[in-house]
Simulated scan of single mutants.
Amino acid sequence: MPKTIRFHLDENVSNAIAEGLRRRGIDVTTTPESGLIGVSDEEQIALCREQERVIFTQDTDFLRMAQIGISHRGIIYCQQKTRSIGDIVRGITLIWEYLESEEIQDKVEFI
Rank of each mutant, 00 (worst) to 15 (best):
R49C: 13
F62S: 09
P32F: 03
F62M: 03
D27I: 02
Q51P: 10
I70H: 01
I76V: 06
A46C: 13
S34C: 11
K81T: 10
E42H: 13
H72S: 11
E50K: 15
L36R: 12
D59E: 11
A16N: 13
G86V: 06
E42Y: 10
G20F: 02
N12P: 04
G38V: 07
Q44N: 11
C48Q: 03
C48D: 02
L47K: 13
Y77R: 01
S84W: 00
N15C: 10
I55H: 02
I95T: 06
R23P: 12
E33P: 11
F56C: 12
Q44Y: 07
I75R: 00
Q58K: 07
Q44H: 10
K81E: 08
E19C: 12
I88N: 00
I26E: 03
L21Q: 09
R90F: 07
D61Y: 06
R83Q: 11
L36F: 15
E50H: 13
V54M: 07
I55P: 07
Q58S: 08
S34K: 12
E43H: 11
G69C: 03
T29L: 03
L36N: 09
V28N: 04
F56K: 11
L63R: 11
I37A: 07
I75Q: 00
Q67G: 08
I76T: 04
A18E: 07
Q58G: 12
T60I: 13
G20Q: 04
A66C: 01
Q58I: 12
E52G: 06
T82G: 07
N15M: 09
T30C: 03
G69H: 03
R73P: 14
Q51T: 15
D87T: 06
R24H: 03
G35Y: 06
L47Q: 13
F62H: 07
A46P: 15
I85N: 02
S40G: 08
I92W: 02
I26C: 05
N15H: 13
T60S: 09
C78D: 08
N12V: 01
W96Y: 05
E97F: 03
P32A: 06
E19H: 12
V89M: 00
N12D: 01
I92R: 02
E50Y: 12
P32H: 03
S34V: 13
N12W: 00
V39T: 15
Q58C: 10
R73A: 14
K81D: 12
Q51F: 07
S71C: 10
H72L: 02
Q67N: 11
R83F: 10
R49A: 10
T29Y: 03
E50M: 09
E43Y: 09
L47G: 13
V13Q: 04
Y77K: 06
R90E: 12
R83N: 13
